[in-house]
């Protein structure tokens, strides 16, 4: 009965969603010509090249035009990792072996070989965030994946939490201080036009944008590694009272 009701509800919802989105023709140019600057997107496309000398427009939007939003976002990530740690808290004496069986030597050697390469790829991705697709979030996630490999392969591998905290805090302080420097010199938070801009499509270009994205990369890497470490270190508890018959 409930299933029938829900399916009817979803059918109505799907019908109206379809009607609504067929009004937005797929693939049609809704931006207008960038020179007219009729929409926000056209303004960004038209001005990014001159004003911030960044070739990846998405990076310019994420870091500069909507940089305040990004600051809020990394704060949300930080809050998520803190919340995870407080939800999955455990006492010191409850420390258990994370993985019962040692992993095979193939996995161990492979992860030891891959770990520096994965971290290098992540650093490449967020250093070139203003030139190629990618940036701080992607690079940080890739670095967290490298740490995840080591955490899975080695039982004794522990990420130092004080190091994570330091990296995370320093990156956050760097982000905010660059924003405040823009506030002092240019009058708005994260104002980029007073930083020296290089040549378009060279590694050192875009003023403060690459620096901010590198800071975001380190911050995201530290936060995601912290989340994975907390999740992996939760005590495996199979013998809870009401679940006696285990398979």
């Amino acid at each position: 009965m409930k299933k029938f009701f829900v399916i009817a509800l979803l059918a109505i919802l799907g019908f109206y969603l379809t009607i609504a989105f067929l009004q937005i023709p797929f693939g049609q140019n809704r931006l207008g010509q960038p020179q007219d600057e009729a929409t926000v997107g056209a303004y960004y496309l038209n001005n990014t090249k001159e004003k911030s000398a960044v070739s990846n427009v998405v990076t310019a939007i994420v870091v500069n035009y909507r940089g305040f939003d990004t600051l809020g976002e990394v704060t949300v990530l930080f809050l998520a990792s803190t919340g995870l740690a407080s939800i999955l808290y455990r006492r010191k004496e409850e420390e258990v072996e994370r993985i019962n069986k040692p992993s095979s030597s193939l996995l161990q050697t492979g992860s030891k070989f891959l770990f520096p390469l994965v971290v290098l790829l992540g650093i490449y991705v967020f250093i070139h965030g203003h030139l190629t697709p990618g940036g701080g979030f992607q690079g940080g996630a890739i670095i967290a994946t490298g740490f995840l490999l080591m955490l899975i392969a080695y039982q004794k591998y522990h990420v130092s939490h004080s190091m994570l905290t330091w990296v995370e805090s320093l990156a956050g302080v760097l982000f905010v201080s660059i924003g405040l420097w823009g506030l002092i010199t240019g009058g708005t938070f994260l104002e980029n036009s007073y930083f020296p801009k290089g040549v378009l499509n060279s590694l050192i270009s875009g003023g403060a944008i690459p620096i901010i994205y590198i800071a975001v990369g380190f911050k995201v890497a530290a936060e995601l590694t912290g989340v994975l470490d907390i999740l992996l270190n939760t005590k495996e508890e199979k013998s809870v009272p009401s679940n006696q018959n285990e398979k």
Binding site: G27, Q28, N29, N56, V57, V58, L200
Partner: peptide, 9 residues
Amino acid sequence: INNGTAPIF
């Protein structure tokens, strides 16, 4: 956008 390119110069 049809036949558009990625927003990267």
